[in-house]
Simulated scan of single mutants.
Amino acid sequence: MLKGIPFILSPELIKILMEMGHGDEIVFADGNFPSASCAQRIVRADGHDILELLDATLKFFPLDTYVENPVSLMEVVPGDDTKPVIWEEYRMIVKKHDESFTDFDMVERFAFYERAKKAFAIVATSEKATYANVILKKGVVRE
């Protein structure tokens, strides 16, 4: 164990975050997402929700400043009347860790799956909220 690292971040997830480079993407997938069939690398976070993982990750993870929206969400499928309340919670968490954050990139469902297939890794969670999938694009650390 190490000091200052949230217990929710497994050694495997810390390793993945460290190995990622500028522009690489990581997906935090809800419990309904086809993580295993999309992932090049999968990190199991069974029993955890995305909110706590996102907050813990963004303490260490720089978002890409070279793109307009480094955080992407799966948009609601046309005709589905779901109103994802978790998105506002995501907004508060991202803004807490990155004051320059303005808005999310909204990605159509099947385009989101295709991006997930190219992502550096997918973190499979037990998140129950619908449309809770989120992609983070890694930036650079500036000293």
Rank of each mutant, 00 (worst) to 15 (best):
K95C: 01
R91Y: 15
D55L: 09
R115D: 07
R91N: 14
V43W: 01
F104H: 07
A119N: 03
A116C: 10
P6L: 04
D24Q: 07
P78W: 07
K95Y: 05
M106Q: 11
A39E: 02
A124D: 14
W87Q: 05
D24L: 09
D30A: 07
V43L: 07
L58S: 06
T65P: 06
I93C: 00
F7N: 14
L58T: 03
L9R: 02
V94E: 02
L9V: 02
G23C: 05
D55H: 07
L51C: 14
S100E: 14
Q40V: 13
A36E: 13
I16C: 08
R109F: 10
T65A: 03
E108P: 05
G139T: 05
L2P: 04
Y90K: 02
K15A: 12
D30Y: 08
I93P: 06
K83I: 15
A39G: 06
K59C: 11
S35D: 11
F104V: 03
T82N: 13
F112D: 03
L2S: 14
T57W: 00
M20W: 02
V43N: 06
K15Y: 15
E88R: 09
R44L: 15
L73S: 05
T102A: 04
V76F: 02
V27S: 00
I14D: 01
W87T: 10
P11E: 11
V141L: 09
I26A: 00
I42F: 04
D46R: 09
S100I: 07
P34A: 08
S10L: 10
C38T: 08
V43M: 08
R109K: 15
F110W: 13
L58M: 11
K137R: 15
I16R: 07
F112M: 05
H22C: 11
Y90G: 07
L53R: 00
I93L: 08
L73N: 04
F61T: 03
K128I: 12
T130H: 11
